[in-house]
Amino acid sequence: MVTATPLEAELLELAGSVPDPELPVLTLRELGVVRAVHARGEDTVEVELTPTYTGCPAIEAMSLDIERVLREHGVREVTVRTVLAPAWSTDDITDEGRRKLREFGIAPPRTRAASGPVVVELGTTRTREPRLPEDGPAPVRCPHCGSAETELLSRFSSTACKALRRCLACREPFDHFKEL
């Protein structure tokens, strides 16, 4: 790991301040997708960006936005490179990002164990999650009323990264940012 120079740190901050094109309440830093900024020479910069999902169509808009912001800051050459490893995880979303998601009406992803392939037992459709063990994963809470009693309507929602759920207390449907 090479330590970032003050310039690189500044540019990383700038690139990270770009809002997510699909969830504009979040910045790319809060989403955890800007991996690094490398200054190459006087005014050439390379940015490492990682997609949330392999097929995420927002990655192109993100690249263009990062290029624009850094150019406006005076960087002449900006290259945004897509990196896959290490794979992005919803654990990369910052606490501030989670808070903003909830305010926006999206249940944030629960944090998961650090290693190993993911085992997600989602239960059958349109049934409540069974009572979860004390040491098991936390329930998905309704972002509107906070109730832990929610049901799954569909494993996939408006985007691949979300599932559609409904609150059994306030009856509002809501998106849940799936754990990945």
Partner: peptide, 14 residues
Amino acid sequence: FAPLAAKAVKEVDY
């Protein structure tokens, strides 16, 4: 194929 597979396996799980 390891970098792609590590990413995709989580999607395929769903």
